[in-house]
Design a protein around this nucleic acid. Structure first.
Lengths: 202, 202
DNA sequence: TCCCTGCCATGACATTTGTCAGATGCAAGG
DNA sequence: CCTTGCATCTGACAAATGTCATGGCAGGGA
């Protein structure tokens, strides 16, 4: 009885390489590969995998959002998140979205197949170092608006541009920014963006 | 006669997966894997691969710098750069460093082996879309100092912090920043950093 | 109901940032 | 030798940014 896998990663080369890696295991079978989060649910419907390996960073729907959709429609499909960045907030959100495991891409290749098997067996797989980081960093202290404003600031927009985009007054944008700067312990907007993003809060 | 390969990528999972993918080809053999740029030259000395696959983004020495070292000591070792980001400046610098090929990670997995064979045969392998981008973006218009200042600005430092780090007066830092902002077509520091980085100028 | 929190806004203020003009020194190239 | 480009600095100015106090409004507990 082989474990049926779905692979989602926007980088075709990595996707294909992971597929090759997992195909080496006799008890694993890759039944579907997709390159965008939007396609995950559809592929799950069609191929009914046992485990879905989802990258977080994907165009369109990200892996965490895709995980939530999958779990909502197919509670028996296990989700293993595989990501480049071990952002604490990613782990928290992934687990809240119903993921059973969370693996960063610099874990040894040999451990991936094991992680898949454990997840399939109903166990949780979480990098212990990351788990402690997640506890330390905690949940995002930012309010909804503060988060939105920082996201808008990511591309180097001016206050005026952000105000226009979010339909807010410039003063309000600056208030939210100031508040976010305070909460992140930063001294300016750019630093606040880096800190928040590094924690997976954006 | 198999082609001997060296793999360098800081993400162990990706490294292992690529290794599995390439091992499927009967004429290819992965003889060494390293996870940092500093280890590339040493591994080449020991294993004498025919082709080295190097990621650009690596801790310590980046893939392009490693390529230059390898080519200087072993001119008969071909270098194929494999990277996540198709930054125009990366391609230019990679070719200047003596790389024979440049592949982004969202090319189909099936093409990688072909790219390796072509590089080994003495041909150049370059993503055509990326090549035109590189021509459009052109060489970095930034002077040495401008580049340094933008790099220092990447972490959200204030002018005062950058001045201290670079042993310059605050006025000078602001002048270089202003100049860089003008050259990148940005309207502020943060945007200039994004544009310059996106072009591979930092 | 009252209180608290989040959200929105305004106005005022100090600081930081971006721009500009002007000046010097240095090195490379014609 | 002269020009050009780069790097450095100063001083001054306008614009953008960050902070603070204050107020209004809505929703969710206690």
């Amino acid at each position: 009885m082989t474990i049926r896998l779905l692979l989602a990663d926007d980088q075709a080369l990595v996707r294909g390489a992971l597929s090759a890696l997992l195909a080496l295991e006799p008890d694993l079978e890759v039944v579907a590969e997709v390159g965008a989060g939007d396609l995950v649910l559809e592929a799950v419907r069609e191929h009914r995998p046992d485990v879905a390996l989802l990258d977080v960073e994907m165009p369109g729907l990200d892996g965490i959002a895709a995980a939530a959709l999958v779990r909502a429609e197919f509670p028996d499909v296990r989700v293993l998140i595989v990501t480049t960045f071990g952002r604490p907030g990613y782990l928290r959100r992934a687990l809240q979205a119903g993921a059973s495991g969370f693996v960063v891409k610099d874990t040894p290749a040999a451990e991936l197949a094991d992680a898949v098997r454990r997840v399939h067996a109903g166990l949780r797989v979480v990098d212990p170092a990351l788990a402690t980081d997640s506890l330390i960093a905690g949940e995002s202290p930012l309010t909804g608006r503060e988060t939105e404003v920082l996201q808008a600031a990511q591309d180097g927009s001016s206050v005026a541009a952000m105000a226009a985009k979010l339909f807010l007054s410039e003063g309000t944008v600056r208030n939210h920014l100031s508040s976010a700067i305070g909460k992140t312990g930063a001294t300016n907007r750019a630093e606040a963006v880096l800190i928040a993003d590094g924690n997976g809060w954006l």
